[in-house]
Design a protein around this nucleic acid. Structure first.
Lengths: 336, 336
DNA sequence: ATGAAAGCGCTAACAT
DNA sequence: ATGTTAGCGCTTTCAT
């Protein structure tokens, strides 16, 4: 330790203040409410900040102000574009509003999710983003008890914890069935991942297709997540299960793409022998051969809407509706 | 306010302590060092915690202990599987070590990155993950000044800020050129995204291919990011630039997949008319028709290695090497 | 416009 | 094994 030197450690507002010849509070003001500081003083303070390379300690700031500036986001899978694509605009919108995001991956596991929520709550987040509307009772209770803004994304709910932003998976299933029916398909198969939302779309597709007079669709539920590989295996699986021709409703464009490739490998014509409807309108959907018929959900809008709703709630506003439906659209291209 | 009631607000350790009939510190101990608390006391405290639903305030804890339990991670793009796929194991490893992640997306912009680093530093992270080794001078200076553990991922560097974990992009380029040469290709094209690492792979491929005696490759640099769409357009672009046949080195498997599709649309045989080498060995690479020849980098290993290295540095260890090369492997399949 | 005083809820010594 | 005393670095009154 140097003679006469203060003890080591980070640069604090106190040090900056001493250099600028003001009190510590003035430095705080200069940073948070510059309009309340005389221009000359402000200039001296800013110069001292620059000279020292001072970086404010937001941990201390958060404790004192009781505002963490943190939003917690939980998504099932980071690598799954379905979720990362609405997370991106969400994070960006939050960043612009001055918030930072703590991210956690649940792996589609409600117990993990509940444990993570508890962990995240200890960071005093000002809001929470959850994926889907199915959460463990513990999780719901904790969140309700914490009384902070929560937005559930990617689904609509009759009884959201706080607010939900998404669309009706049941309606997409019905819409796909009607679309297939109108295009003349009377036989169908369904190829789906085992997650709750995909299964709801599948069930809705099947009942609507049958209600319209179609044959009961052949089903194949893949283990694991949506991928081209599983899509290829899925077509094989469907054919083993008795699917011979008709339209296949896939729970993801990735599955649909896999079906396209497997059909090509088997010299099956698409949509002549096998027709395909995907889900998601992912970036490649308009660029396969043939182009994919699919369901579009605007994930940019989803992320932004979720962020806006959360920010309003954080700001103390009540929302007119606790559920926001961003809708969806069946995009008819060439594969069905 | 109720008569006799304390003022409202969050449940604190103080309240839990009162209920359990102990002092506030004992509650802190019960949570952080349970072995230092008598079993009977511990039981009473835990019961009080359960009864109140107490969630510790880590913001206060972080301030007092000067350990935030936070790691900051900056990646170029959240939706790009190249980056999310090493982020996932990284986050998981960090979670198991008790850390939470604050995530920010730089959009491949060094200025944005520097600004975000400054913002993130105010959260007092115990470590930082950066993507790549190209950072603005400001950014380097801040990080060096902060003196905290930094791991740069996805590249190796001769002069890392702290530690780097990745592989040599130049070597992958050379390896692809040698591979192509050995398979008998004497004409080549390159299709690349405009990011720094992809360009280095491209340059290395070209110079090695020429050094071996091959013709100077036809080049096409895509605007925007790697995608099937851009891959299709890329093949068209290469042919406009004079590419007629040979092998195409792509900076991503997504480009390579796009080339496959475009070749199919143009009735070109792969690898007969056009051969393709991708990059990344993404999950679909072994399931296209034909299967993709590509370069594999184990992103799971990358994420875990980065986490381990960072944890060691946080623990105060010096590492034997400041740069860890996780290597790569050319995977010869059918497309080249 | 500026400063002094009082905490935010917790952990880290140092007692006992 | 448990409690007491001091802060951590900042924001928020409340004075001046």
């Amino acid at each position: 330790m140097q003679p006469g030197g203060k003890k080591a450690g980070p640069i604090t507002m106190e040090m900056v203040a001493r250099i600028a010849g003001v009190s510590q509070v003035s430095v705080s003001r200069a940073l948070n409410h510059p309009e309340k500081v005389a221009p000359a003083t402000l200039a001296r303070i800013n110069e001292a900040i620059r000279a020292t390379g001072f970086v404010p300690n937001l941990v201390a700031g958060a404790l004192a102000s009781r505002r963490s500036g943190i939003i917690a986001a939980l998504i099932p899978s980071i690598t799954n574009i379905t979720y990362s694509s609405f997370l991106r605009p969400f994070i960006e919108a939050m960043r612009q509003a001055g918030y930072q995001i703590i991210l956690a991956e649940t792996g589609f596991d409600e117990q993990e999710e509940a444990a993570m929520v508890q962990n995240l709550l200890s960071r005093q987040p000002e809001g929470i983003l959850l994926t889907g509307v199915n959460h463990s009772p513990d999780c719901r209770r904790m969140l309700l008890g914490a009384g902070l803004p929560v937005v559930e994304v990617w689904d609509t709910s009759e009884s959201p914890i706080d607010i939900s932003v998404g669309f009706s998976h049941v309606e997409t299933g019905r819409a796909m069935a009607r679309f297939a029916w109108q295009r003349g398909y009377r036989q169908a198969g369904v190829l789906t991942a085992p997650d709750q939302r995909a299964l709801r779309r599948k069930d809705a597709f099947c009942s609507e297709f049958i209600a319209l007079g179609g044959a009961a669709p052949v089903e194949h539920v893949c283990e694991g997540s949506a991928s081209i590989k599983n899509g290829r295996e899925g077509l094989a699986g469907l054919m083993r299960n008795g699917f011979t021709s008709g339209v296949i409703q896939c729970s993801s464009d990735l599955f649909a793409h896999g079906v396209l490739i497997e059909a090509q490998a088997r010299s099956l014509k698409v949509p002549g022998d096998v027709a395909v409807i995907g889900f998601g309108d992912m970036d490649f959907a308009a660029h396969t051969v043939p182009k994919l018929t699919t369901v579009r959900v605007d994930r940019d809008v989803l992320g932004h809407t979720a962020a806006d709703a959360l920010l309003k709630r954080i700001g103390g506003h009540r929302l007119t509706d606790s559920t926001i439906d961003v809708g969806f659209k069946v995009i008819g291209r060439q594969s069905a």
